[in-house]
């Protein structure tokens, strides 16, 4: 079953049309990487998938739920869609542990004790077991982003969205975050990743999608897109970044 079904998605910001008809399906367990120049609409597209941006027109079905349905309980739907942001967005007034526990406890997915166990286990998975009681400000960027991933995972989402998760990191910290994402992909998580890390896309993605000017210009396996790009714009872009 497809985890994400998007048909003819349009998004306007005022008079500016940012997405000009996107069609995409993401299968269960698939890792899809979105690449493309800035301003191509990749992030906007990703943010439409959990309604952080409201699409102007089209169909978006995530995890079987119709996102465009005004009567749909968007909070319920979002519980199943984890999201990781470029700027981490950890809650600075809460410890790492509380950052992770907040949503699962509040949404009654887990009791306080279960949440604590989950939080500790997740921190161990991302290699930060000893940071449970730290505040985010005392963590490096890479550590913060790994906590952000753990926080999203604590809701046991069916799908994870990553919005340029390594773009705000110092170069030496990019690897640790990508490794966590790679592990997640290997465990079979359905992932949609907006990234500038071509190495990651090449190695981990099942499918690479090149976006430009609000359209999906080209898509295929990493071998196809990176090895033998068909479209002129894809070729130009890859020549510039690789």
């Amino acid at each position: 079953m497809a985890k994400v079904v998007v048909k003819n998605l349009h998004k306007n910001f005022g008079d500016l049309e940012v997405l000009k008809g996107i069609d995409l399906e993401v299968q269960d367990g698939e890792v899809v990487c979105l690449i493309g120049p800035s301003g191509s609409g990749k992030s906007t597209f990703l943010r439409c998938l959990n309604k952080l941006e409201e699409a102007t027109d089209g169909t978006i079905i995530v995890d079987g739920f119709d996102i465009m349905d005004r009567n749909a309980d968007i909070n319920k739907i979002r519980e199943n869609i984890g999201m990781v942001f470029q700027q981490f967005n950890l809650f600075p007034h809460l410890t790492v542990g509380k950052n992770i526990k907040l949503a699962p406890v509040d949404r009654k997915r887990l009791t306080e004790e279960e949440a604590e166990k989950t939080a500790r286990k997740l921190l161990e998975t991302v290699g930060l077991a000893e940071k449970y009681d730290e505040y985010p400000a005392n963590l490096s960027g890479g550590q913060q982003q790994r906590v952000a991933i753990a926080r999203a995972l604590a809701m046991k989402p069916d799908i994870m969205l990553f919005d340029e998760p390594t773009s705000a990191l110092d170069p030496e910290m990019v690897g640790e975050v990508l490794n966590v994402m790679k592990k997640l992909a290997e465990q079979g998580m359905t992932m949609v990743v907006v990234t500038h890390e071509m190495g990651f896309a090449r190695e981990v993605a099942d499918r690479v999608i090149f976006m430009d000017g609000g359209y999906i210009v080209e898509q295929g396996t990493p071998e196809e897109v990176f090895g033998n790009p068909q479209n002129k714009r894809t070729q130009d872009f890859l020549n510039m970044v690789l």
């Binding site: 519980e79 999201m83 700027q87 967005n89 949503a103 949404r107 952000a148």
Partner: peptide
């Protein structure tokens, strides 16, 4: 920061 609201909402709050 408006990312705080987005992060909270994205978790289903």
């Amino acid at each position: 920061n408006k990312g705080q609201m987005e992060a909270a909402r994205s978790l289903g709050l």
